[in-house]
Each structure stands twice: as structure tokens, then as C-alpha cells.
């Protein structure tokens, strides 16, 4: 009897839980550095999936104004008659906005933590890691600013030189015909390629799907995806500037 009670955990002596209710799973996830990175990975992959669809849709520009404008119109009819005209896009936008915001907030908080963890730099500094890895933070800021510009340019048409509502083809050609319109877009797409190159593999690592056997394949997939996205997106302004799409 004495032996048995000696091996039993004394519940009263256990470390008391923090006052109040224990944090929920979601809060605990967000509070830990590993969990916050998982949130970044998931939101990043969501945006990446959207970008693949976006890029493929953009290629319709090569089939002429009717094809692209018709496609843009069809996007607004998805889900009809259950959904009203344009509702599908309005359902997608909050999801994308949430992804952008959580990705950015998590990145900011994690970066603050990372910089604080190395208060004193080495005197002998060495170039570390790949270019894509080193430019993740500022590349992300560039992409965030670009998204704002891009929406003002081709969604709200606030800064678009043509600003013909319902005629995206004409607006695209007008925007990319200006040096700044094409220039900003090209720089942003190069930043996107670098961001995806490190980001995709990094997300696989963060979500724990990487292992020694998959490592090379995942890196190759990240490079391929980055290249494909950048090339696909860049083909449109390049074609406009070369006069192939007018």
C-alpha cells in the first residue's frame, strides 16, 4: 500500500496551471515561434495557389481582348445562380486579405524576435545563405507595396491610364505601355520569384513534410514553381512592351 502510493503522482503537488483558463490551441499555436511559422506557411501556400490560377488566367491576354474580357466576366458569374453576380470574387477577397495580413503580421513579429536574438553582430561578417533567403523580408515588403499598387492600377483603376471598367484587356495594355507601369510590375515579379523560391521549400520544412528523401524534389519544385510563375506573369508586360499585345 505504501509502495503503491509512493509511485503515484501526487496531483496536489503538480505544478499549478497558469491562472485563468489554459490558452486555446489556436492561441498557443500563434504564441509559439514554430506555430506562427506554420501560420505563415499555410497563408503563403494559399496565396501561392491563388497566384498560379491568376497567372494562368493572365495568359488569356494572348488570345485577344474578347477572350480575356470574357474570362474576366465569367469570373464574376462563378457560383450563379446560387451566388449573385460578382459574389464569388467578394467571397474570395476577404480570404486573400486575411492571408496577406496574417502572413505579414507573423513575418513582422518573427523578424522582430529574430533581430532581438542576435543583439550584437559579429565583427567578422560573412555572406550567409542564398540571395533568395536573404531577401525574404524586404522582398516581402516590396510585394506588399506592389499588391496595393496593383489593386489601384487594375482593380479600382484609380491610377490606370485607360480606366475602362469591364475592359481589363485595354487597361492592362494601357498600364504596361507606360514605363512605370511595366517597370513596377517586372520588378515585383522578379521579387515574387525569389520569394517563392525560398518560401515554398521553407513552407514544406515548416509544416514538417520535408525529409531527407524529399528534400531535393521539394527544392526542385520550389525552383520550378518560382520560374514558372515569374515567366508566366512577366510574359504579359514583356509582350505589351514588345508590341505583340496591343
Amino acid at each position: 500500500m505504501l509502495m503503491a502510493s509512493a509511485t503515484r503522482t501526487n496531483r496536489a503537488n503538480r505544478t499549478p496551471a497558469a491562472p485563468g483558463r489554459p490558452p486555446s490551441r489556436a492561441a498557443a499555436l500563434w504564441r509559439s515561434s514554430v506555430g506562427k511559422k506554420a501560420v505563415m506557411a499555410v497563408s503563403g501556400l494559399l496565396m501561392l495557389a491563388y497566384l498560379v490560377a491568376h497567372m494562368l488566367g493572365n495568359l488569356k491576354v494572348f488570345f485577344g481582348p474578347d477572350d480575356l474580357n470574357g474570362y474576366a466576366h465569367w469570373l464574376r458569374t462563378i457560383g450563379q445562380p446560387v451566388l449573385h453576380h460578382g459574389w464569388f470574387l467578394w467571397l474570395a477577397r476577404p480570404v486573400l486579405l486575411a492571408a496577406v495580413v496574417t502572413h505579414g503580421v507573423a513575418a513582422y513579429q518573427l523578424s522582430r524576435r529574430d533581430l532581438k536574438a542576435r543583439p550584437q553582430q559579429y565583427v567578422h561578417r560573412r555572406r550567409q545563405s542564398t540571395y533568395a533567403t536573404r531577401t525574404m523580408r524586404w522582398g516581402g515588403v516590396i510585394l506588399g507595396l506592389f499588391v496595393v499598387w496593383h489593386i489601384l492600377d487594375l482593380t479600382t483603376l484609380t491610377v490606370n491610364p485607360a480606366a475602362e471598367e469591364g475592359h481589363p484587356y485595354q487597361n492592362i495594355v494601357a498600364s504596361f505601355s507606360t514605363w512605370y507601369g511595366g517597370g513596377i510590375y517586372c520588378v515585383a515579379m522578379l521579387a515574387l520569384g525569389l520569394h517563392v523560391r525560398h518560401g515554398f521549400w521553407s513552407a514544406a520544412q515548416t509544416l514538417g513534410v520535408n525529409n531527407p528523401r524529399r528534400d531535393r524534389a521539394l527544392k526542385a519544385a520550389a525552383n520550378g514553381l518560382a520560374l514558372l510563375l515569374t515567366a508566366g506573369f512577366l510574359s504579359v508586360p514583356v509582350a505589351v512592351m514588345a508590341g505583340l499585345v496591343r
Partner: peptide, 15 residues
């Protein structure tokens, strides 16, 4: 992981 965060180590950026 909780102890690691509490000690003030940075997070992983997969460099």
C-alpha cells in the same frame, strides 16, 4: 519549444 522561445532564441528562417 516553449522553453526555447522563453529563452529568447530567434525563430527558424530555413537558411
Amino acid at each position: 519549444v516553449g522553453a526555447m522561445d522563453a529563452e529568447g532564441f530567434g525563430g527558424c528562417t530555413n537558411t
